[in-house]
Structure formats: C-alpha cells, structure tokens
Design a protein around this nucleic acid. Structure first.
Lengths: 206, 206
DNA sequence: ATATTACACTGTACAGTGTAGTTTAATTAT
DNA sequence: ATAATTAAACTACACTGTACAGTGTAATAT
C-alpha cells in the first residue's frame, strides 16, 4: 500500500515575508544591526513577532535574507558593452553612474550604509559576501581591453587602470554620499565630469 | 574667618585612566560599540568595573574620550610646505602617505574601522566630530595654489582638484585597507605611484 | 488546515549603583 | 631619614532595572 497522505495546497506567504523583509530593512537602516530588536521589526512590519519567527529562524537569519535580497537586486544590472562610435567619456560616465546606482536611492543608500557598517567590523563576513557577487570590475576590465585594442586607450596594467577608475568614483562620490546621507550627490555632475576627464588624461591616446 | 580647609594633593590617576582607554580601544575595535560591554572593557584593562565608572560617567562618555584621544593624535601631523625644488610627484606622495598614517598601524586602522562603522550609521555625530578637526584638505589646497603660482600645475577649481586627489587616495587605498584589514596595503606602492602619476597627467603643465 | 495573532513567559546580558574593605601614596610625627 | 597617619583610589561583589532573543500556547482569521 502506498503511503498516501492527504496534502493540501499551502497558502501563499510570499507577501507577508516581503512585508517583514521591508520592515527589517527600515529598522536595520535606522539603527544598525545590534540596536534593532525583533519586537521593533515586527511592529514596523505590522506583523506579530511570532510571525516574524515563523518566517525566519533567527535575527541572524533575517539579516542574511535582507543581504541576499539586496545582492540579488544589485546583480541585475546589465553589462555595458564597448562601442567604437561613442566617445570614451560618455561610456566611462555610464560605468560611473552604474556604480552610483547603489547610493542614489534612499533605501539602497541606507542598505549600503548599513552593510558598510557591518562589513567594516566583520572582515570575514564581508569577504564571504563579496565572494558571492560578481564584481563590476570584471565587466570594466573587458571594456578597457576593448578600448586598448581599438587604439583609444593605452595602459601597462588593466588591473591598475581599473583600480584607478573605481578608486576615483568611490573615493570622490560613493563614500562621500554614504557619510553625508546623499547630500553630496547634489554636486555630483562637475565631479563626475572631472573624474572621467582625469582618467582620460592619464590613459587616453593623444 | 576664612574657610580654611585642609586640602590634600590628589594622587595621579592618569595612568589608570590611560589603561582604561587602551582597554576600551581594544574592545571597541574587536566588536563595535554596542557589543562591547563595560564588564569586558574592565576585564581587558585589568581594572575593576567600578574604577571604570569612577573615571568615566558612562559608556557613551568613555566612547567620547576614545574618540577625542584619537582625534588629538591625528591633529599632530605637521603640514607639508610647497617646495620649488622637489618634484611634484615626490611631494604629492607625501600627502598621500600622510593620509595613510591613519591606517598603516593596526590600532589606528582598527579605530578608523570602528569610527567608520559608527559615523556611517550616525551622520549627525559624524558631522559633529569632523567639524572639530581641521581637514587635511586645507593644507593641500594651499599647496595646490602654490604649485599653480609656481607654474607647475594648472586647474580651474582648487576644490575640485583637491577632491580628485583625496578621492584617488581614499578610493584606491584607504577604504580597501579598511575592508581588508590592511592586507591590501602590501601592494600599495604601485598604486601610490600610479595615482600620483594620474593626478599629474591631469593637472601638470606640459 | 494553515497562517497569523496576542500574550505570557524564560533566560540572559548588560548599564549602572552601593558598599564595605583594601591598597597606595602624600602628609605628618618621630 | 623613617615610621605612623590618613585620605584618595581602587577592588570585590552583590544588586537593580531593563531590554531583548527566542518559545509555547490557545484563540482567531483565511
């Protein structure tokens, strides 16, 4: 005899899960991991604490889910292909703008801040998470190689050139935005232009 | 009649205070503000918890003292003067190295990490603290103006040029060191050279 | 039948205090 | 100079109150 078990279609709990995640994001962003209590998260999500624990085993677990969600979003950016016809400046600016995607919206910027505070104090965890994500540098390195093959750029080491570019973007824009909660982005245009122009001064051919 | 009170010279408690501060630094660096307990700090400092509270009113207070100590140290760097005879590259490298002072020693780097985690989650506090400290940019801006007056550099906006330089240094070196706990500093030399060279490509005359 | 809620409850960790006794060092007496 | 005196600094330890992670359960909503 087969072990026939009456099974019933489970209800869709996706919505509640999402509500909890959004609440968790709000609270984590507001106060950081340690200060955020599960009671507060439940309250902000508009859900009983027990329901939070029915969806997520533990606070650690909920945090991981928040991180994974964020990384999934981040990975959905489409790569930028090298174009022979468009100007270098225009294309470089696109790479820079793509990097700013993480900080130009209050929630994504909040998460970036929050994760910065976590990663900087837990190097191992930060390394682990960064290992799960494909770095935007890869795509840029391909672009740089194409530009060199096309005779528009000239460099000794692609790695070094890529580090200079992302250093410029992050150092001049990303981190300032994180520490000013986005206020510095009001003046981003001149910096963006200057930074691209600096890169081209160094590596552009004539 | 004067209210003559037999007063006794107070004992020097500077040493204990210092021991407590050092213990607090160790513990804060290790775990961040919220996770660090006053019991743990007392234990690491080798001092009774009551003594900690005899020196510092509260945990918040102790934290402030740690921050002030760190800022005092940071302020003691001597300014770099413009020289007509030394090469631009050499002098720029000195500015970059001065910036790396904050992260080239494990304890200072630990404190930089710790403060980054605090400031990024409490913008107002970060602003307040940064307002108390004279920025190294000021000194660099003077240098840039001297170099322009000397006909060696050429730029539209000093502010922008300074932002590019510190963006390069922080983006390429400082933050990577923070997130890798200094591991990235092993390869700092080529980056330092490249970054200075990039800056000179953009703003150098001929 | 499954998901959710309200609510009470456990255990733990921790900031901060109170106190009584001990150590240390500046002052005073020898 | 040396020893006794004394107040300041320190320690051990018990204690208060609070906040919070996580659980158990019975009732309710879907």
């Amino acid at each position: 005899m087969t072990n026939q078990v009456k099974t019933r279609k489970k209800r869709d709990t996706h919505e509640k899960r999402q509500v909890i995640l959004e609440g968790a994001v709000k609270v984590f962003i507001e106060s950081g991991y340690d200060v955020s209590s599960m009671d507060k998260i439940a309250e902000v999500a508009g859900v009983s604490k027990r329901t939070v624990y029915n969806h997520f085993q533990s606070k650690e677990n909920l945090f991981q889910a928040v991180v994974n969600d964020f990384l999934k979003q981040r990975d959905q950016q489409k790569p930028i292909e090298y174009s022979k016809t468009r100007s270098l400046e225009e294309q470089l600016k696109e790479f820079a703008e793509a990097e700013l995607y993480l900080i130009d919206d209050p929630i994504r910027r909040g998460l970036s801040k929050f994760l910065t505070s976590v990663f900087v104090m837990d190097i191992e965890f930060g390394k682990k998470v960064r290992g799960q994500v494909k770095s935007p540098h890869e795509s840029f390195i391909n672009w740089l190689n194409s530009a060199q093959a096309d005779g528009k750029l000239q460099f000794q080491s692609v790695q070094l050139a890529a580090q200079i570019f992302y250093g410029l973007v992050e150092g001049c824009l990303t981190y300032n935005a994180l520490f000013s909660d986005g206020a510095s982005l009001k003046f981003k245009e001149p910096i963006l232009t200057e930074l691209v122009s600096t890169f081209v001064s160094r590596y552009g051919v004539e």
